[in-house]
Design a protein around this nucleic acid. Structure first.
Length: 445
RNA sequence: GACCCUAUCGUCCAGUGGCCUAGGACACUCCCCUUUCACGGGAGUAACACGGGUUCGAAUCCCGUUAGGGUCGCCA
């Protein structure tokens, strides 16, 4: 479609991938995919002291998890590498010499400064429109430093050099860079290069409007991975912060978002982050996930909880039963543990509620006996037996349901009881009811 | 402090001069469905920051005020 469109995401490896950064990456990616362009990942690791291999890995992992694959970048050479600023020293030196030769630089205390052109610089931003910055006053706009006395480089300079060298056509970045843009434009001009088109997208703040920092809920992509969000849900939520398809649809598949995405539809207002809505989108996406993928996503959480199972596929009946309850996958172990151990915990409150009625235990014993005599153990028959037993005891089915549920699962809430008992099996169900009865006195003195 | 951006329900987004007694979604409340909890269905609470203009007519355009955010580093 348009091979000349090249965008980039240029994170600095700080040790975590911020949602704001992820959203910036997403918009770049969507723009590239929509236009058939190239999405470049560049690691801005000029601050050597702070950069570690792990810090880079967190970013790569986060982007991959979100499904934001890059066409060029670390581990994927595209002819414009290397993609780590720490390895591009020779390029910066070359451009530095060019600026030096053309008289744009001067030394100041060992550092090198760029002599501002002292002009009115116009930023024509795709999102923010035409903005004029008057740089003529050196008091308010001091000459920027581009190189430290130790020879290391400053962000503004290397950022511009890389965008030139990597043939970046559109710079899509957070609005926090809007006021830096005139400086970058000066550099492009001094270097005799055509600047890219800019699109500054609104920032993501906390729900109360404060700046999001690492520890805030939802700030780190790693947090979503660990909590068990579906990547498509997080991607969907992030895409809706500052952008919308302009109709009222919100639950979007990625193909649809790519098709609809357009920078001109990005608004200029900072978004306040709402984890509740992200959670809702997650349950919506999870509900649509085919069982085999659902199982794969659950597996890490099941394994981490130490639940033992024969084969992954063997989890399917239980997962199918329980998935309607699950909002984030990290909840999975709590919902399924009692299927995999006889040593499941009893919620004291649930026990108390279930056995408030003094005849509950007696009735439950009769129900266990009736279950034992049921040869064809399936949900429909189980329900029939329970209702028949209730009738014989002149009790309401409801009066048997909770004690049964609590006995076999230890909890007051869970999936539909009859399918749940079917999956559990007749022997285990009966045994558990009797076991609970035997210990009920201790459980509920 | 200077400069820049922004300003619609608590939150996210619609709305770009008349279709707006402002629409959708999350959250919240209530009702229905229901064996629990959810899901689902229905209903409800809730906003154009303020003040001036422009106009026959303004949430939409202009100015000011206020508020929030951002930048002004030898951080990125």
């Amino acid at each position: 479609m348009n091979s000349e469109i090249r965008v980039r995401f240029a994170p600095s490896p700080t040790g975590y991938l911020h949602v704001g950064g992820a959203r910036t990456a997403l918009f770049n990616w969507l723009f590239a995919r929509h236009h058939g362009g190239t999405f470049v990942l560049r690691i801005e690791d000029t601050d050597k002291a702070r950069n570690t291999q792990e810090a880079v890995q967190v970013i790569l992992d986060g982007l991959r998890w979100l499904g934001l694959d890059w066409d060029e970048g670390p581990e994927k050479d595209g002819g414009h590498g290397p993609y780590f600023q720490s390895q591009r020293e020779h390029l910066y030196e070359k451009y530095f010499q060019q600026l030096l030769a053309s008289g744009h630089l001067y030394e100041d205390g060992g550092a090198w400064r760029f002599r501002s052109l002292r002009e009115v610089v116009v930023v024509d931003d795709i999102v923010c429109g035409r903005i004029e910055f008057d740089l003529s006053n050196r008091e308010t706009h001091p000459d920027m430093t581009i190189r430290r006395p130790d020879g290391s480089w400053i962000f503004h300079f290397v950022n511009v050099v890389d965008d030139i060298e990597m043939r970046i056509s559109h710079v899509i970045r957070g609005e926090d860079h809007l006021s830096n843009t005139p400086k970058h434009l000066e550099l492009f001009k001094a270097l005799g290069c055509q600047p890219p088109q800019y699109a500054h997208i609104p920032l993501i703040l906390n729900k109360d409007g404060s700046k999001m920092s690492k520890r805030d809920a939802g700030a780190s992509i790693t947090g979503y991975i660990e909590a068990g969000y579906a990547p498509e849900a997080v991607r969907n939520y992030l895409s809706l912060l500052g952008w919308s398809p302009k109709d009222d649809r919100e639950l979007l598949e990625i193909e649809e978002t790519i098709r609809l995405f357009d920078l001109s539809k990005v608004n200029r207002k900072n978004a306040h982050f709402d984890l509740d809505k992200c959670l809702w989108l997650n349950s919506q996406h999870l509900a649509k996930t085919p069982l085999d993928r659902y199982r794969q996503m659950c597996l890490p959480f099941v394994q981490k909880a130490g639940i033992s199972f024969s084969a992954p596929e063997a989890l399917d009946p239980v997962l199918a039963l329980v998935r309607e309850k699950v909002k984030v996958l990290s909840e999975i172990p709590a919902w399924i543990t009692y299927f995999y151990t006889e040593d499941y915990p009893f919620d004291p409150e649930a026990v108390r509620k279930a056995f408030t009625n003094p005849v509950a235990a007696e009735r439950l014993a009769l129900l266990a006996a009736a279950f034992e005599g049921l040869s064809d153990w399936n949900a429909i028959n189980i329900e029939a037996v329970l209702k028949q037993t209730a009738t014989e005891l002149s009790a309401k089915p409801n009066e048997l349901l909770l004690p049964t549920r609590v006995s076999v699962s230890g909890r007051a809430s869970g999936p539909n009881l009859f399918p749940m008992l079917e999956v559990l099996g007749r022997e285990r169900s009966v045994t558990r009811i009797r076991h609970a009865l035997a210990t009920e006195a201790q459980l509920n003195p």
